[in-house]
Design a protein around this nucleic acid. Structure first.
Lengths: 347, 347
DNA sequence: TTGAAAGCGATACCAC
DNA sequence: GTGGTATCGCTTTCAA
């Protein structure tokens, strides 16, 4: 331990050990604790000391080691964000916003993307090992999985998913309400027969949307309703349209898709494969309000999720829970914004 | 320190201290080092010991603390991925793939998204503090910034950016080559006048694309070429088209856009605002090969980047550099794949 | 205000 | 194969 500085480099110039607070302390002729204090906002250090230490820190290129700090403070300042591959592909805005909001608040994001839902157990272990302060889940978790996180004392906020029979923190867009308003508009405009293209079965959001639409259709006494499966992809929107036509014998008056990307696929297939006029002969609606939905070729009628507000809510909710773990579970539900585009005849 | 287990909980059930290897050791009646060894693959532990330890670890819900491990091993097993907001919004595939590839190799991703390029200095400090083992930069870095990372001994791989006058690790798609092949096809098909919509000035990729196209046009002795600025967004594709028309007096034969999203905007504006037939009266080409480029409304002629191969290359390049810091800088350049869609007349 | 010393929770190098 | 002990780089009492 004689000379950390020279020992810190190998012949090839690659640093082997980093500059530590001890190095700074020695160089500045102060104690190591003093150095530590200088980097702690609001600590009691004399002006002279601070200036001296900061100067040598700068010279040596010292940066406090966040890993070591985390070990002693038991705060990693990292939050895990778990997002499904699909969500980021079809709705990248969410991750971008979350990342930005956390970054503004000085919190680092450890990213986990899920290819298959089955990978989640391994991932939870990883998340726990990395001692994140909290988790934002834009994916489904089973009861036992939630139990695990709770037992470990890791605050958890669900983004756009929540288990009905469980008290968890969540930020959601009101999927059912959004669907109901779409149905209301369509029915009021005279549509009589409906086709629905649902999303992945394992997506709670997708189920809520399809259920919401179905319920409202039933309430309004609409009899002709057919549901076909989809998986949120463009291709499944195309296939869904053809599927509906085959099953119903002819096209319905309106098609309600569980997300925008499928609606876009459906719309494209109607126009380009079947030569059907949208919205004159067929109305198509989606959900999400993604960028492409506004493109002139589509001008989709849809429900936009208030992503900015939702991500802000999720971020502050998790940070509050980190500060105050005793806070009771909270559910924040945001209404979507009906975008009356040109892909559907609405009242 | 008498009873960690009971001390580990407060009245409300929130864990305050985690289960450590000491807890497991005590419970299992073995040494703490033994516990550690059991969690290290390939360590010499007897079957009996391993079984015993794993059992109590399971019972207690013990997971090794990755932070503590990182501190002693000087390996965080985390890699920083720096990506611009734009890249993830317009081209989400990249981040999804990178994340997936790292995850497969047992490496965690610390995500940094850049809103403005100016934020990058603060971010680099953050990256260094968190002791990441390496960095994948899908953003521009200045010379001094690269110096900083090198001085700190953090391996760095650029994704689709590289400084000409610097030896750095990078994985790139050959932007210029891609543009040249687009130009070749367009010129061979008889297009005489060209409009170019460039991307953000601070994006090296965008500059390479526009330059590549310009060079080839010059080589082929095409005189009528106008360049207008864009920013990669759909809106700037729309504006670019109108801008080109205004500046040239009439529309060119072909428009070359620095990315797909602008090409889509351009195409939409041509068809829906100007009533121009694409590709009959105007050819439009893009670059990237994003999902929407293949949608039936667009069927864009473009150059697809081999994202899968590129992300694989970036991931293995950075992991190799982490294992062997002495490896010399390497540049891997991939050719794009020409997608001969329906938005341009090509030879 | 400052410095000495005790951890945080693991790994790794020792003897045994 | 197993257990003791010295780190890793920091924060945090506790005296001075």
């Amino acid at each position: 331990m004689a000379d950390n500085i020279s020992a810190a480099r190998r012949g090839d110039g690659h640093r082997v050990t980093r500059v530590t607070s001890y190095d700074v302390a020695r160089q500045a002729g102060v104690s190591q604790s003093a150095v530590s204090r200088c980097f702690k906002p609001g600590a009691s250090v004399s002006k002279k000391m601070r200036a001296r230490v900061m100067k040598t820190a700068e010279d040596l290129g010292y940066q406090p080691n966040a890993i070591a700090r985390s070990l002693i403070t038991r705060r990693s300042n990292m939050v895990a964000v778990v997002i499904s591959r699909q969500t980021n592909l079809y709705y990248p805005e969410v991750l971008v916003q979350l990342s930005q909001r956390f970054s503004e608040r000085g919190v680092r994001v450890l990213l986990f993307t899920l290819e298959r839902e089955s990978d989640i157990d391994v991932m939870l272990d990883q998340i726990l090992q990395y001692q994140v302060d909290g988790v934002v889940e834009a994916a489904r978790l089973s009861g036992p999985q939630i139990d695990l996180m709770e037992k470990r004392g890791v605050p958890l906020v669900f983004y756009n998913r929540s288990l009905k029979d469980r008290r968890v923190n969540s930020v959601c867009c009101d999927q059912a309400e959004g669907e109901r308003s779409l149905v209301n508009g369509l029915v009021a405009a005279g549509h009589k027969s409906f086709g629905l293209i649902s999303g992945p079965e394992d997506s709670a959001v997708s189920v809520e949307r399809t259920q919401g639409a179905l319920e409202r259709l039933t309430e309004l006494n609409i009899k002709s309703v057919t549901v076909v499966p989809g998986d949120y992809s463009y291709e499944s929107g195309v296939a869904g349209l053809l599927d509906l036509k085959a099953r119903m014998g002819k096209l319905p008056d309106a098609i309600i898709c569980a997300n925008d990307v499928m609606a876009i696929g459906c719309l494209d297939a109607a126009r380009h494969q079947l030569g059907v006029k949208v919205p004159e002969d067929l109305s198509v609606v989606g959900f999400d309000g993604v960028g492409p939905a506004q493109w002139q070729s589509y001008d989709l009628t849809t429900v936009r999720q208030p992503v900015r507000r939702m991500t802000e809510a999720a971020v502050s909710m998790i940070l509050e829970r980190i500060e105050h773990p005793e806070l009771p579970p909270e559910r924040r539900t945001f209404s979507g914004i009906l975008i009356d585009g040109g892909s559907a005849r609405m009242a």
